[in-house]
């Protein structure tokens, strides 16, 4: 074998190893948590209030809290994010201000989650007096999720061929009719994928809700958007670092529930994307 081919073999082997070593821990982590967490998963664990200082009972309020926060985030971030994407793809002129918008989006995507927490504390909790609540937490998470939704939706919108728009215009459609009846439906799978990936991130985040929404322990369900709430990621943080004598299977059980919650969103996004790809007509 000539030396340069031997080098290639060696390097390809190294690269394959890098790829394997990158994904192996992922499988390992998910498998490990599933293995140790599954024994905790019973109907009571999922549906009951925590008892005995959270060392027994279930995690129902944390599950509900995470659902509320995710929904709240969606209610704010989805319309705003998709509309912003529509603006960028269908309306925005190519000028300095549009570039500023793009720069702002890139920066929003890069701001550390804990800085979002500070911002949410400053604006929503203290300045707007929403107190530590689902509303304040959802708004904070929504702004954090916005750049993901905007950029993925914009890619999806731009992928709709220009000819579709031209046909609609030529049939007398207004710009908005064209967007609503032609462009958005075509881009829907791509937008949905982006939305779900964005919400997935929001559901798993702890730092932004630390000062804006999360309650350590609340033995009831929140009954308004102005109530604080328990949430799965924060609950996992609490029971793994703050509660003494916590049965280890409850910690892994909570981690598993959070993981399933987040990864099923991930799976949904993957399925939507691959089905859309298979069906695409252009």
């Amino acid at each position: 074998m000539p030396p340069r081919e031997r080098t290639q073999h060696l390097i390809f082997a190294a690269l394959t190893l890098a790829a394997v070593l990158t994904v192996a821990p992922i499988v390992l982590v998910v498998g490990y948590i599933a293995w140790l967490g599954l024994p905790a998963i019973r109907w009571e664990f999922l549906s009951a209030m925590p008892r005995e200082g959270m060392r027994a009972g279930g995690i129902w309020p944390a599950i509900v809290g995470t659902l509320y926060l995710t929904l709240g985030t969606a209610v704010v971030a989805v319309p705003l994010g998709v509309a912003a994407a529509v603006y960028l793809s269908e309306y925005a002129p190519d000028n300095a201000f549009t570039r500023a918008i793009r720069l702002a989006i890139i920066n929003l995507a890069g701001i550390p989650s804990v800085v979002y927490g500070l911002f949410g504390l400053g604006l929503f909790v203290l300045f707007l007096r929403l107190s530590t609540s689902i509303a304040a937490g959802s708004l904070t998470l929504a702004i954090m999720t916005l750049p993901v939704i905007i950029s993925t939706s914009e890619v999806a919108l731009r992928a709709v061929p220009q000819s579709f728009r031209l046909v609609s215009f030529s049939l007398g459609g207004t710009r908005w009719q064209t967007i609503w009846r032609v462009v958005l439906p075509q881009a829907l799978p791509g937008i949905l994928t982006g939305v779900i990936l964005g919400l997935e991130r929001a559901a798993g985040e702890t730092a932004p809700i630390l000062f804006t929404a999360a309650a350590f322990f609340l033995p009831r369900l929140p009954d308004s958007a102005l109530d604080p709430t328990m949430a799965l990621p924060y609950h996992l943080f609490v029971i793994s670092t703050q509660v003494p004598g916590m049965p280890i299977h409850l910690q892994y059980g909570t981690a598993l529930v959070l993981l399933v919650f987040v990864l099923s969103m991930n799976l949904l996004a993957t399925v939507i994307r691959s089905r859309a790809r298979a069906r695409r007509q252009w």
Binding site: V29, I33, G204, T206, P233, L236, F237, Q251, L258, L259
Partner: peptide, 10 residues
């Protein structure tokens, strides 16, 4: 998609 608390916990 792995939540950061899950990684921190492990």
């Amino acid at each position: 998609g792995l939540p950061s608390v899950v990684l921190g916990f492990l």
